[in-house]
Design a protein around this nucleic acid. Sequence first.
DNA 1: GTCAAAGTGGCACGATGTGCCATCTAGTCC
DNA 2: GGACTAGATGGCACATCGTGCCACTTTGAC
Lengths: 202, 202
Amino acid sequence: MAAAPSLTERRKQATLLEIAEAAAELFAEHDTKDVTVEAIASAAGVSIRTFYRYFQTKEEAVTPLLTVGARGWQTAIAESNAGDLRGAIGEAITTTLATAGDEDREALERTRGLLRATMKDQRLAAVWRRVNGESEQRLCELIADRKPDADPFAVRLLAAAATDAIRVTFEHWAGADEASAVDPVTRAAAAFDQLSAGIDGL
Amino acid sequence: MAAAPSLTERRKQATLLEIAEAAAELFAEHDTKDVTVEAIASAAGVSIRTFYRYFQTKEEAVTPLLTVGARGWQTAIAESNAGDLRGAIGEAITTTLATAGDEDREALERTRGLLRATMKDQRLAAVWRRVNGESEQRLCELIADRKPDADPFAVRLLAAAATDAIRVTFEHWAGADEASAVDPVTRAAAAFDQLSAGIDGL
DNA sequence: GTCAAAGTGGCACGATGTGCCATCTAGTCC
DNA sequence: GGACTAGATGGCACATCGTGCCACTTTGAC
């Protein structure tokens, strides 16, 4: 665990989250093109100039809310000591999503709302794709660390399979009418099993 | 076949391509943030205002050069009458990429250069992800047309597998030192086989 | 209490993207 | 061939975006 962060550091994190949540709330109601940076900054209680010190564009402001889960399963994979890679990744997906699902219901519903808005709005969709792309990139490095002699192409393919399993599951979950019949956790795990079933040499 | 397009229509297409190629050439030399719309428009011989009638942003200007292949295999899948879906998609990938590879060498190298620039530049990477995302979306619709009763989640998964097989192959091909040892066509086909091996119910 | 380091806000400025209108060309009808 | 309409283009104005610069305030260490 990291040492207790300084007051300044905690305030920065708080400001970051305030901006992110203000942006998410506004984006849930209006299209991104109809929301100015000034409106987001004002809602978050900071100046425009400060907003741009935290995020490069207004769309990026929701990034922290979309990457909360990613951190979890990245460390889970890094720390896992399962022998086979597919097993380790599958396990990481299951445990991470399960614990995330156990958190408070309200946060889960907010995430769902944000994802819905993300699917509708082009600019937000670009952020969603970027987040997933970076996840895939990160996973490539993690796999390469565990299997230094693996075929680089196979590594990319496995990383893509894992990322897509989670991505497609989330997209389907967000688009489902109500509480979907199938549990997202088992669905993501099954999806990864299916996508990675034919990948050999790892 | 469409009727012979009018002179106006042909000129519009020519202008579109001129802008796209001017943008690609400039992006190959400089970072996107160092290339103004004015520079692209000037290089293409049009005004700034006209540029914005063809593309929404300067990054989008390269889209036509990144989607040339996509049209091909979309129609190939739509027209294919192979019984099993995986076979039809695999066949479409092979034939489309093969014919694309037979075209003139210079165009191929230009595409490679554009892809290299695309991997390095954040903004262009976003365009690349958008193009692939739309490909996946389109493929979902094509699959749903052929298998109206299929599980929607499985459809998404299969579409993601096919898109990723091509995407990862292209990214790897662009990043390879020189003429890579493995032919991209066979590699993409093999990648799709591996990713889709475990997808059942289609 | 003093001081360096760092976060914040205001201002200016180039670049972006769009609405509006004037001009010119393509294709049609007489 | 000549006139007319639709559509493409260019120029201008304007709101917004994103950043460099400087002054002010707060934090945390000595």
